[in-house]
Design a protein around this nucleic acid. Sequence first.
DNA 1: AACCGGATTTATAACGTTTTAATTCTGTCA
DNA 2: TGACAGAATTAAAACGTTATAAATCCGGTT
Lengths: 346, 346
Amino acid sequence: MTREILDTSPAPNGDKPTLRSLAEATGFSIATISRALADDPRIATKTRAKVAAAAAAAGYVPDRAARRLRTGRTQVVTLLLNTEHEFLGFTHEFLSGITEALRGTGYSVNVVPDHVGEDRLQPVRNILRNHLADGILFTRTEAFDPRVRLLMENDFPFVSHGRTEFTTPHPYVDFDNEAFARIAVARLVERGRNRLSLILPEDRFTFTQHLRYGFLSAAREAGVDHEIVAGVTLDSSAAEIATAMRDGRSSDTPPDGYVCVGEVTALVTLSALADSGAVLGRDADIFAKRASPIFDNIRPRIETVYEDLRETGHKMAEMLLRRMAGDKPEGLTHILMPDFERLHHS
Amino acid sequence: MTREILDTSPAPNGDKPTLRSLAEATGFSIATISRALADDPRIATKTRAKVAAAAAAAGYVPDRAARRLRTGRTQVVTLLLNTEHEFLGFTHEFLSGITEALRGTGYSVNVVPDHVGEDRLQPVRNILRNHLADGILFTRTEAFDPRVRLLMENDFPFVSHGRTEFTTPHPYVDFDNEAFARIAVARLVERGRNRLSLILPEDRFTFTQHLRYGFLSAAREAGVDHEIVAGVTLDSSAAEIATAMRDGRSSDTPPDGYVCVGEVTALVTLSALADSGAVLGRDADIFAKRASPIFDNIRPRIETVYEDLRETGHKMAEMLLRRMAGDKPEGLTHILMPDFERLHHS
DNA sequence: AACCGGATTTATAACGTTTTAATTCTGTCA
DNA sequence: TGACAGAATTAAAACGTTATAAATCCGGTT
């Protein structure tokens, strides 16, 4: 009878160690146990040691729900992840970097889809309103990204992948896309190319401007012809990009140097060249940015530079940890440089 | 004075609607509000309507921490994700499928790294012990996967990507790798190839056995020579695979038909062929499985079949939802077939 | 010997839910 | 008129934590 009544407690409990069970085991009160585990100096050192031992013996782990309810802290980091387009391998490397940095910190990663076409603010509002996370990471940052504005207004910890043009500083990790574009132009010009072509991402993203500026100014400085392909972006389908490429090839003066910001674009360019009878190295050259090792095995070989997304994710998560711990946003920025070395990434 | 004391509540609250605030607003008790929102038939229909209206007006959303503490349900699904190796695009497509299926269900995805080299059981134990999720998804399933055993013992909801050889049924989604291997062999043989070669994943994974069986039996039936490359697996570094490939090419009777289970292997094979002076279509052919659209733009073209990982993730999440809702594991299995159609995946 | 102050400890009230057991309302029937 | 069953509501406890405010303890003074 009695056991039936007791049995109705919501969590079967079993024997999960809790502050209460530790209190009973050690003879101290729940409050003392709690403080001792937090290493509160008001608790006698000897007591703290005893409690720590008991906790270890019982394998005590604080209940996240209870702590969260009481403190309002979730111990969760949300990643707003674009699930439409991907830079090959982006998601994998990026996410791996994040989980790696968060390992052992007690924080876990929560993935929420971010659709560029829809309202990008909605998931953020949801997180803010219901305190669904202690911090946010996101990608594909826009020049005046509304998410950045909203999060700054609420003084909510976040790190963006990519800069913005807001004057107030905020934590970010970015790749130096301007430097990439300049390097790409320089290398192609060195090879004697003088009609350069570039396909940009959508205008809204900040890095699009960096790429444009780097490409245009380097090309002007070098005094070579150059074009930014119209009507198509990095996120266009492979088929659309292929069509645009073919159109370009059939011009009287087709480009002879291609700067490719993504792997898909690079492959499409490569196949468009092959399909139009042009020979790489003779009729044109390609310089591409890549995030995965596959280009080591693409033939003909093309020159590439590596964007380390694992490192990017790692750095972003580290910064977010600091920000959540209360650090001021000021110093928390990092810019990764194009990497020439990483040629034989396993 | 008084306001200072009131101000010490841990969550600033602000004006976040809660059961209590709804109770005050409507004049009903907290218990009634709770039941009304759950559509409990014991509450008068009129009352339920009033409460629903008030909740909607206030934009009430139940507090996850409180509900979790009370009920023990987390509303979280954990994905054990391999962060070492990746099938190109695997993570992105798979994760997208999962989040898509979970959209609007109130469940969120939590990503926890799974290192095949280390103890794969540890994250699972952690989740079970501390009730960190209501369900688990994982990949790279082994024939007698200890995670499956542990989860079944605890009657904890999960869906594996890949089958096991346990006799007790459990939910899974798998790709028909045996069919893939048979098709690959058949196509290569049709093209007149009679010395086939295959690089397998590590032996521990169930799908390795399916691939092996499909390959060996199809090759025997067709009466062609065949080999499974020794000393190297799908997860070996590109460099190691390349070396093995080159060794194979320099034999007296090099293979003339390659079955490639992953994209990296296919690209390495392609580059090894090119580097050794062999011409695709004349000296050898490749048949590959792919999970991303890039092969449309690889030249020379190779024949491929598509494994839809977005669909895989979607199905797995759907099944997990059913399982968490209490469905029996019996019917919850699904096997995806190799897809020939998906040639121009955007 | 009573007392004081700093060092330790503890009772207790939240945090926002769900749910058991009890209570209050209805209208009906004797 | 009063009792009563059924419908509708509610008080209160609990989930496991943290933190406020109050209560003990102890050695050293007066």
